[in-house]
């Protein structure tokens, strides 16, 4: 019986994921209404449940893909993987009002630049405080603070040690998760309510995963505006970190 279920789950991975996520969304909606009287959005609770399950999965298997490392739930890797995530993000562009996006385009670009430099400076400073002195390690950790893809790309380009690269990924992943969890709580403080404000947020918060989940948990209608800017984040980081930013750090230390 057990092997039968296992085979069913593995052969129908994606379909099973739709059912599991549906169940999680249903439970979250119920908790949102009954426990918080609608104050905490259902999708915010669903993302928290998802992260908790990812923790449990990671603990059980020792793998890097959360719940998706359990053979039974391997379909989640496809449903929540980059391909479908980006496809769904592109689809939300259908809701964008071109006039709104055009008007806030320049401030989005400014936010994108600050969102690259500010985390980098913080990452480098803290790494320095923790005893790192060579330009390569400092730059790699700073790059990881931008997004968890910029870290390893930069580290590989300038020849960082694998220990430092791992560290830079950890910083980026933790930042992304922190953005997912704290965005709904900080939404009021950040004045997240207009398309323009979402574009500023998308540029500064960085990481598509953090921004997309954070906005999903806050206000679904803001998602396309934030994502539109955030999707340039990794590219810009990969462009600046191993070149301009690395040269600046090397000149300073």
């Amino acid at each position: 019986m057990n092997t039968l279920l296992q085979k069913l789950a593995v052969d129908n991975g994606l379909i099973l994921s739709f059912a599991i996520v549906g169940l999680v969304v249903f439970c979250s909606g119920f908790l949102s209404r009954k426990l918080t009287f609608g104050r905490v959005q259902g999708s915010a609770i669903a993302i928290l449940i998802g992260l908790t399950l990812a923790y449990v999965g990671g603990r059980m298997t020792g793998g890097s893909k959360g719940l998706a490392d359990l053979a039974f739930f391997s379909g989640l890797a496809l449903m929540g993987g980059n391909m479908l995530r980006d496809f769904a993000i592109v689809a939300t562009a259908f809701e964008v009002q071109p006039a709104e996006a055009k008007r806030a385009g320049w401030i989005g670009a400014v936010a994108l630049l600050i969102g690259t430099f500010l985390p980098f400076i913080i990452g480098v400073s803290i790494a320095y405080a923790f005893g790192y002195r060579d330009a390569i390690s400092l730059t790699t950790i700073g790059a990881g603070t931008v997004t968890y893809i910029v870290g390893p790309v930069t580290g590989a380009a300038i020849g960082a040690s694998s220990e430092v690269i791992t560290l830079s990924i950890a910083v980026g992943v933790f930042k992304a998760i922190l953005v997912m969890v704290t965005t709904p709580m900080l939404a009021k403080f950040m004045h997240l309510k207009t398309p323009r404000s979402a574009m500023v947020f998308g540029g500064l918060a960085g990481t598509v995963s953090g921004v997309s989940a954070g906005l999903a948990a806050t206000d679904r209608s803001l998602v396309p505006y934030g994502a539109l800017v955030a999707t340039f984040h990794t590219g810009l980081g990969c462009l600046l970190a191993p070149s301009l930013l690395y040269f600046i750090v090397r000149a300073l230390v």
Binding site: V25, L51, A54, A88, V173, A176
Partner: peptide, 14 residues
């Protein structure tokens, strides 16, 4: 979009 993001949350390296 939201279901996909929830599936994404489930496979983060928490």
């Amino acid at each position: 979009y939201i279901p996909v993001v929830i599936a994404m949350a489930m496979q983060q390296n928490v």
